[in-house]
Simulated scan of single mutants.
Amino acid sequence: MTAPVLDTDLDRAWEAVTRHLAPTPLIPFHHAGLDVPVYLKYEGAQPVGSFKIRGAIAALTAYAGQPVVTASVGNHAQGIAYAAGLLSVDATVVVPTSAARVKIEALRRYPITLVLEGDDFDGAERHALDLATAGGQYVSAYNDLHVIAGQSTLLTEVAADLAEDFTVVVPAGGGGLLSGVALAARRASQDVRVIGVEAAACRALSTAVSTGHVVSVPMGETIADGLDGNLEPTSATPGIVRDCGVAMVSVPEETIRRSVRELVATAGLVAEGASATTLAALREGLVPADRPIVLVVSGRNIGLDLLATILGEP
């Protein structure tokens, strides 16, 4: 089991992340059609186009220059690659052969060792763990206390921008971002309700939360590839999500696709499938509208062909 994430870990992560990254914008979303304000926390504005850079900088700073190994379908890989260059750390990144081409090509621009292995995230992760046993610190995209602490900085930024109580809606795959947000929410001066959103096709986290332990579940087809994949057996995130009282919901594929299109059409924001799950949850009526709402739009790294197809759908 991963060690507990302590308040001191959150403090060190905040110091590391804010040293290198500017806050991302909190954008009013005037097309929500609700009586309460709705905001978009747009992590597409990060240098690598997603929130993953937060956890990567926090983790590589904490590991103090050790060589690292990781596995990812793309965004965590780019975060590690960027942070490795920034902090002069040797990094090996394992990506499944099924990863989006746009993400693989982006990784080739960084000074890392890139390995394409496995048909899916689970296969890539197994290979990366094997490589780490031969030398290197494995940095999980979600089951690493320093990564989780780094992701907490997103909520800390939001809490600094909003004076009142609010609800924050967060995409949920392995649960690293959701866990970090939930831990930071407990330290906020406001009352912060946290809702985690899964793609209906990929419900590993909510299954682990409800059963009390990690179990392997089937993964269906989804454009929310950032939420795809099962959890490490020792993953700490289900326990954090449960202990923090996070509500878990899931959204269907057609609503995710419509939400990608809506974010472009009404907010002018490019969002990958995982990012659009939060708006999808709002449109499915899964988010209470009794206080201001923050939708985390977690990344913009969607393939142009897929985006063009979705934009052309009725």
Rank of each mutant, 00 (worst) to 15 (best):
G85R: 12
D11N: 15
V194W: 01
A182Y: 08
G299K: 03
S235V: 15
P314T: 13
D191L: 11
P47D: 07
K41G: 05
D243E: 15
I310K: 06
L155V: 08
V95A: 02
V192K: 13
V168H: 01
S189F: 10
A184S: 10
G268C: 12
T167A: 04
Y42R: 05
R186S: 05
M248K: 00
D161P: 01
A160T: 14
I53S: 03
P314H: 01
Y138Q: 02
V89Y: 00
A188Q: 12
A280P: 06
D243V: 08
I223D: 07
Y142M: 13
L178T: 01
L162K: 10
Q78M: 15
R242E: 10
I80P: 05
A77K: 14
H213R: 12
G79P: 05
A163L: 12
D225M: 08
P288D: 05
L155K: 08
P111R: 12
T277Y: 00
V181Y: 03
V93R: 00
L34A: 11
P218V: 12
D90M: 14
V251A: 04
L114N: 07
V169D: 00
H31M: 09
L129W: 01
T97W: 00
D161G: 01
D35I: 11
A160D: 13
A276P: 03
P233L: 14
T133C: 08
G135S: 10
A81E: 03
V296W: 00
A265N: 09
V251F: 08
S259D: 03
S235D: 04
L34W: 06
A271P: 12
T211L: 15
Q151P: 07
E125W: 06
V217I: 11
Q151C: 03
L60N: 02
I148G: 07
T18I: 14
D130A: 13
G303T: 06
E117S: 06
V197F: 07
E272R: 01
M1T: 10
V95N: 02
A271K: 01
D165A: 02
L34G: 03
G176W: 04
Q137M: 08
A13M: 05
G180D: 04
L282R: 02
T167K: 14
G229M: 13
A199K: 03
G136N: 03
F121W: 10
D122E: 13
A91V: 14
E117I: 06
A84V: 04
R187H: 12
L263F: 09
H31I: 08
G299T: 05
A84S: 15
A99T: 14
